[in-house]
Amino acid sequence: MSYAELMSHAEHIRRNATEATLATVEGRVEYRPAIERMFADVPDAFRSLAQLPDPARFDPMLAELTGVLQGLGGQDPVSGVTMPANPELERIAGAALALARWTGPAASGFRSAFLEPFPALVRNQFIVAAVLRAALAAQREIWVRARDDADQIAEKTLDAIDATADCTRNEWTITFTVMASVAALLVVPLSGGAALAVSAAGAAAQVVAAGGPAEAARTPFSGDDAVEVVERMHDAITLLHGHIRDQRAKVDAALRATHDLVVGHRRLFVADGGGWSSFSGALGYVH
């Protein structure tokens, strides 16, 4: 089976549950309409799961943010991957030497507002870009695993309906892998701040530090009859929606916290506006 066929599986579940139940009335046609109504909502239950975002849609955005990280250079605090330093940015350090004999208010403003904090600003921008990239990767992972889990629910429901032709009760387990898609929040200290740090949530498979990923949740279900199996299918779908919400909430929390930090401490990420004004004024004076 595959996720692409989820609605087709849903239709099979509806049909097989109907036939399994009809078998208990020896196929008497007068019961067919009532039995068909009992399972008519099965495709609807899967419809929202069949429209989960396509993980591939995240790839261009991830590539774009990888480009940003490569432009800034540094070690990704989430994945641990080191991006080589950007030689263009490294040349800024050389500017201090070149301007060593430049004095006056403009020189002081330029040095204090731009040259000196420059490495810290670059480092902090890198961290924020890494947090954004991790959030995207985590979102991608959520949808990859949620699709697998939805497929698993359909597959095991079909098998369980098959088994109800027997008189033995059956138990099956759904492993909600989406529960392990997002790693625990990471705290990444910023440079130049008073013990400030951003929060990050990453795709579990890529996170190298912090609390590590949550365990996949293994939930047992059991049933004797097609009606009961389909009831458990609805339970599993409800659980999956809840698990997806929980994982997305982790990513949202990390992004909100990071957004608030960037907005509240803008000077940790971009050069001070006052310094730039002094510098601009100074340029006028020089000319």
Binding site: T24, V25, Y31, A34, R37, M38, T164, D225, A226, E228
Partner: peptide, 9 residues
Amino acid sequence: KRTIWHPVC
């Protein structure tokens, strides 16, 4: 099964 799970039948 009909008695327990399929009241409509």
